[in-house]
Structures are given as C-alpha cells and as structure tokens.
Design a protein around this nucleic acid. Structure first.
Length: 559
RNA sequence: UGGGGCGUGGCCAAGUGGCAAGGCGCGGGACUUUGGAUCCCGUAUUCGGAGGUUCGAAUCCUCCCGCCCCAACCA
C-alpha cells in the first residue's frame, strides 16, 4: 500500500490561513464545526467538516465540535447523537473538544450585561411585528424603537427580570444598539435575546431567555480560542455584526471566512426540504439510501473515504456551484474498485440448461476475489447443469454489437466454461423461459483455447444459489436542479427505487455481514442493508452501477 | 443612488501582468476470462461584455450585463 498522498489542492482559505500564520495574526490553527442539532448531516456538511477538520489536521491544530443549540424549540438529543455518529463515521475526531453553545449561556448573559452597562444594548418592548416594521426595508432605512433610549439602570433591571421569567414569551427582547439606518440589515439593532419559556434539551428550565445565533456564535468562537471560523456565504452579511460584538466586548477576536456551500445535482440539500421528504413519507427516513444525508449515503454503501475524496475534489471557492452527482459516483467507484470483493449475483434470473453436462454433477470452480488486489485470494463457486443467468444476457435475435448469448452463439461463463446456445424454450405467450446450451468440457475455467469469444457473462448455480432481495436506487429527482422547479416534489424521480425480489446470489454471500460491500461482477457495487437484511432474508442495496459501455452503445444505436 | 458577494470549456476548479493546470463528463483507440478496471489520444486561439493602460491582460483601470444572498424574537 504505497498510496501517494495526493497533493492537496490549494484554495483561498488555506492561503488565508498560511498568511495569518506568517504574519503572526494567529499562532496556530483552531477551527470548529458548529452544527445546530435540528436535523441530520448531509453531504454539504461533509464539505464543511472536511474543511474544518482537514485544515486543523494539516496545520497541526485542532477542530472543535460545537453544537449551536440556542433554539430549544427545534433541537433535540436525537440529532446531537446522530451528528456525532456521522462525524465519527466520516473519520474525524474532535478529541476532548466537544462543546455546546448552551455551555456558554451564563457567560453570554454576563457579557450582555456588560453591553447594557456600556449603553450598547437595550431592552425593547416592541412586538415581533413591530420590530419588523421598524426595521425598514431593503431600500429604506428603519426607525428607532421608542424604547431605545431607556436608561442603563432600567435596562439592567428589565433584563434581569426577563431572565427571571417575569415576562411572557415574545413581549420583550434585548437588542444591540447599532444603527437603524445601516445598509446591512443585520446592523439595524439586532435582537440578542428573546424570551422562550421552553425547556432546552441540555439546560432544561434553567433559562427562559435564549441568545440569537449572532450573539452566540462569535462569542463561542472567542471563548474557545478559535482562529478561523469558517462558514457559508450567506453569513457574509453577518460578519460585520460578528466583528461588532467582539470589538464591543473587547475580547479575543477570531477571523470569520466564508465559502460557497455545496449543491449537488439531482437532489436537494436544504434541511427544510429534506425534513419535508421525511415527514411526508416520500422517503423512508433520514437514512433512506436515496437521501444525500450521511446516514443515507452510509446505508447506500458509500465509504467515508469516497466522501472525503469527493470533498477534496470539488474544491473550496466562493462561486455558486452545482456539482454533478456523477463526480460523487466516480469517487465511490474508484474506492470500491480497489477494495470490494467480487461476487456473482443474478438480479433477473433466466434458466440456463447445459444439455451435455452430467445430471447431478457439481464442480467447485475457482474465482478471483478481487483482480485489483492479489492478496484478496480466491474462492470456490459451485457449478452444475442448471444455472441462472441474467435475462439481459440472452437476446433473440441479437441486436448489432451484442456480445452475449443468442441462438448459435458462444459465450464464456465467467470462471467456468464456454457454452453455445442450442435453443430456447418459450411459454404460450412467446416469452423465453429457458435457454438451452452445450458446453465445451475442455474450456474449464473459461479458457477459450485460441477461439475468439467476445462475451463473458456471470451466472449462478440454480440449486446452490441463495435468494435475495436487491434494491436498485437512482437519483431522487429526475432533474438536475429540483430547487429551481416551482414544486420540488413534482419532480421526484418515480423510479428512484426498484425492488427486485427474485434475485439469486452465489452461496458465499449467505453469511455476509450487514453493511459489508461487494462488487457484483458486471453490475455494480452493493452492500448488505444494515437495517433490514437478515440471515434468512438477504437484502442488498446497490450503491452505484458499474460504468456501462453497452448501455451507451445500445442507446446510441437507436431507441 | 440599500448592503454584501460571484461571473474561466457541459459540471467543478487552478491561475493574481508573460502568453489558459487538473478532475468529472464526453468522444476515439489499446488491452481485457467483469462491454469493469487500466493505459493512451482528443475536448476553451480563449477567460460575462465593451472600451482603456501595457511590448504583453483571465489577471490592472473604466463603464455595462448577468446571477446569488439579506427585511425569523431561525441558524
């Protein structure tokens, strides 16, 4: 295993980090991945995780996992657990640096008091609607709240009573006193605290006022000594506020840098839309193998390595993007090609009878486990007179450039023998129910002995194979940009899941471990479903198909 | 006459004054007991547009065009 560590492609954030280290602005690198525990992580988060943890690793620093849990109404322990599980699975380690914004509630409260004392924050009695009204519009300045000029003493008193729970939800807020005429709406006296008499999954009922994102985030970064606070583009407008709070408080000041979030073709990435799919039962859950969630990709059979590689290849930049899902698929294929053991499985069985093969005879033929890895060894596959082959591997008449079985034609049975089709059996409707052939005993192992045999097909012994259910997945959406359609649900791919129940797999697969991955020769990569597969009922998920040149030819040839 | 960003091939993306990296995809070929893998070759006279500066510009200047984000007591 002499993996040449591919040179890390550079990007503007790495450049900025290098510069900050050189100029002495920061002495080391401390990053953080700050998910809100209100949903499952998806491939877009993987990009951020790889960036945050990757940079820390690269510069000998550290990366914190910090839950941004400032909105108890939407957050829960279920999500906290799922997120930690996913980050670990992806291969990253936060060591002892697990934090929660809720751990800082007291410190944040004290700092708020500090701002009130400095005359930089005030308690406002305006209702939510009024606050919106007073904010003005994109093109018109807002106007100051009538409560903006309350005295420090009064503000201090009111704020403390807010905390004690003397006022009902929504009746008061604490706001920073900045500039109601600012072009950047985030600076028009942003709300720092709102009253919410809701218990929090970690702090219980200790608090009834909760900090807003902007008030919590920068200060949390500061407390933890974060150097580079990396986030997505939509927070660019928040940076002036991030900086304002830190400066107003006069505390350690990390640097926020924004990058473009990932968009993947043929799927949706917004938490709101993913939640809709889950809640409306359009998918089986957050871990449905068609979902772009890490839980879904994991169940689909994706490897952490492939996802990390993908994250590296897409790069980090500031331009809006839509990455072709074909790149993600390429990454798993590349990873699995060199690691997955090969097996034979017939998804849509067609009976093949070898007329001149002795009745009752069984041979154990040797098959290579992985041609890409000589250490993977070989296995024995039972061969007998009656086999199952793929329905697609027999055509009568054969279309142009078809290399597989058809009347009078010879084909190789992978690792077995060369067989020649002698005829077919059809049912009353004319459908082929059985293919007949003879074999060449001298071609054992598949040796064509000089002959040109263009096709090689996979097979399974009818009586020795094991039954299995196979689930074939396709893109969740039928268009590249479902987000741009009026109703994204109208463009769901109706064929995103195809369940095949009569599949036959080679006996070696009988005891396959849940989650284990294989390449089914000539078909694709599959993994044993981790939830619904059992020894008595094997269930396999197709991670991704193999590149299919024949499909392209067939498509180009006509229909 | 609101603010903040972004525009390099079908999709990502390097490049930051010296004459367009790389990857995916696509097309062609070699090889092949997976029509897989692997290996070759091809794929932007041009960098949103128009001017300008310069011996020389995707890179600097000016104007224009287009796209994205922001008016939750969400993050």
């Amino acid at each position: 295993m002499s993996e040449e560590p591919r040179e890390k492609p550079s990007h503007f954030i790495r450049d900025a980090v290098v510069e900050d280290l050189q100029t002495g602005r920061f002495k080391g690198v401390v990053t953080r991945f700050p998910p809100e525990p209100n949903g499952y992580l998806h491939i877009g988060h993987a990009k951020a995780i790889a960036l945050d943890f990757g940079l820390a690793l690269e510069f000998g620093g550290r990366c914190h996992l910090r839950f941004d849990d400032t909105n108890p109404a939407k957050e829960s322990q279920e999500y906290v657990d799922a997120i930690m599980c996913d980050v670990r699975w992806l291969g990253f380690d936060w060591g002892a640096h697990l934090y929660y914004a809720s751990d800082y509630f007291q410190q944040l409260y004290d700092w708020a008091v500090q701002l009130i004392r400095a005359g930089r924050a005030y308690v406002d009695d305006l209702s939510a609607d009024q606050v919106a009204e007073y904010r003005g519009t994109l093109t018109q300045p807002g106007k100051e709240s009538p409560y903006r000029s309350r005295s420090v003493v009064e503000n201090l008193d009111l704020f403390e009573r807010m905390r004690r729970g003397e006022f009902p939800d929504g009746t008061k807020t604490l706001r920073a006193k900045i500039d109601m005429a600012a072009g950047n709406l985030n600076l028009r006296d942003p709300v720092m605290y709102r009253i919410r008499k809701t218990s929090h999954h970690r702090t219980g009922d200790a608090w009834c006022i909760y900090p807003m994102y902007d008030w919590a985030h920068g200060q949390s970064d500061s407390i933890e000594g974060v150097t580079h606070s990396l986030c997505t583009l939509e927070y660019e407008d928040h940076r002036p506020l991030y900086d304002w709070y830190l400066d107003a408080l006069g505390i350690y000041h990390p640097r926020q840098i924004e990058f473009a979030r990932l968009n993947l073709s043929h799927t949706v990435m917004s938490k709101r839309r993913l939640l809709t799919l889950v809640e409306e039962g359009l998918v089986s859950g957050w871990d449905d193998p068609r979902m772009p969630t890490l839980a879904g990709l994991r169940r689909r059979g994706y490897t952490p390595e492939a996802i990390r590689d993908f994250c590296e290849r897409i790069g980090i930049a500031k331009a809006d993007n839509l990455v072709d899902v074909a790149l993600l698929e390429h990454c798993v294929r590349e990873d699995l090609n060199r690691r997955a053991l090969r097996r034979m499985a017939v998804l849509r069985p067609l009976r093949l009878v070898i007329e001149n093969y002795p009745e009752g005879q069984v041979e154990e033929l040797e098959a290579v486990n992985n041609p890409e890895d000589s250490l993977a060894g070989t296995r024995k596959v039972p061969f007998s007179r009656v086999l199952c082959i793929e329905q697609d591997d027999f055509r009568d008449p054969p279309p142009p450039k078809y290399f597989r079985l058809s009347p009078g034609v010879e084909v190789r049975l992978r690792y077995a023998y060369i067989v020649k089709c002698t005829g077919v059996v059809r049912d009353a409707a004319g459908a082929v129910t059985e293919v007949r052939c003879t074999y060449d005993p001298a071609s054992r192992g598949g040796d064509a002995r000089g002959r040109k045999v263009k096709g090689t097909i996979h097979w399974v012994s009818a009586s020795h194979s094991v039954r299995a259910e196979v689930r074939l997945y396709d893109n969740l959406f039928s268009v590249p940009k479902p987000d741009e359609v009026e109703d994204f649900k109208s463009v769901l791919n109706r064929h995103s899941l195809e369940v095949l129940t009569g599949c036959r797999v080679e006996p070696f697969l009988a005891g396959a471990e849940p989650g284990s991955r294989y390449q089914f020769e000539r078909q694709g990569y599959f993994c044993v479903d981790s939830l619904e597969s059992s020894p008595s009922g094997l269930v396999l998920n197709r991670t991704v198909g193999l590149r299919d040149t024949w499909a392209k030819i067939e498509k180009a040839e006509g229909h």
